[in-house]
Simulated assay, not measured.
Amino acid sequence: MEDDLLQKRLGEAARTAREALGLTQAQVADAARMSPAVYGRIERGGMMPSVPALRRLAVALGVSPAVLLDMSAREMPTTDKDLSPEIRKAVGILRTWPESKVAVGCALLRVLDAAPMREEEARLEKGAGAVGGAADLERSPAFEGSTCRPGPAV
């Protein structure tokens, strides 16, 4: 996004948040520890606040800095709270691995991602049944002829 457009959108977002709170520009400026003239320039899109000022402004307006920066959901970093329990567990495990082990894991994931799903696996994914544990997984067609066996449950 161009800097001028970002400044304008930040100002619009600040004005919208301020009006929703029923505050004056002077009240927001005071809460954000800046002069009313500076806050007015920010709200009109004529000035980009510094990072510390942006943070104070977001706190004063009760919004995330991302709201003021007009960031889309796709631009926002994902938090673990946005992930399913299974994916959170996998991420937790990955965080403990050294970089070399992560590289091998990523290579395995690419192979698995490229492999076509078998009918039984598709049925399990749709919820028609669930893998009960390591013994069930070992009997799965995905492990036919494989020397790879699942490790202990985490």
Rank of each mutant, 00 (worst) to 15 (best):
G46N: 10
L112K: 10
L57E: 03
R18V: 02
L57M: 15
L57V: 09
E144K: 10
V111T: 12
M48S: 12
D80F: 12
V67P: 00
E19N: 08
G62V: 09
A13Q: 06
L109V: 09
L108I: 11
K81A: 14
V51C: 01
R56M: 05
S35K: 11
L112M: 10
L54E: 02
M76D: 06
L10Q: 05
A135P: 00
V59K: 15
Q27G: 03
E120G: 01
A20G: 15
P77H: 08
E86H: 13
Q25L: 10
D136P: 05
V59N: 13
C148G: 01
I93E: 15
A20M: 07
I93Q: 15
A128S: 10
G45A: 12
A60H: 01
G11M: 03
R55I: 04
K101R: 14
E86V: 13
A29W: 02
Q25E: 06
T96S: 09
R118D: 15
E120R: 12
A142D: 04
T79R: 14
E121C: 08
L6H: 00
W97R: 13
P65F: 08
G145R: 06
V102F: 02
M71D: 02
I93N: 10
R88C: 07
V111R: 12
Q27W: 03
R56H: 08
A14H: 02
T78D: 07
G132F: 05
G22H: 06
D80V: 15
G133P: 05
T16G: 02
T96P: 00
G40M: 09
T24R: 15
Y39R: 03
V63K: 03
A53L: 03
G46M: 09
K8M: 14
D80P: 08
L57G: 04
L94Y: 13
K81E: 15
L21A: 05
I87G: 00
R56W: 04
L6V: 05
V131E: 11
I93C: 10
I93R: 15
V131D: 11
L94F: 13
A73C: 01
V51G: 12
S146C: 07
A114K: 04
S140W: 14
Q7P: 00
T24N: 10
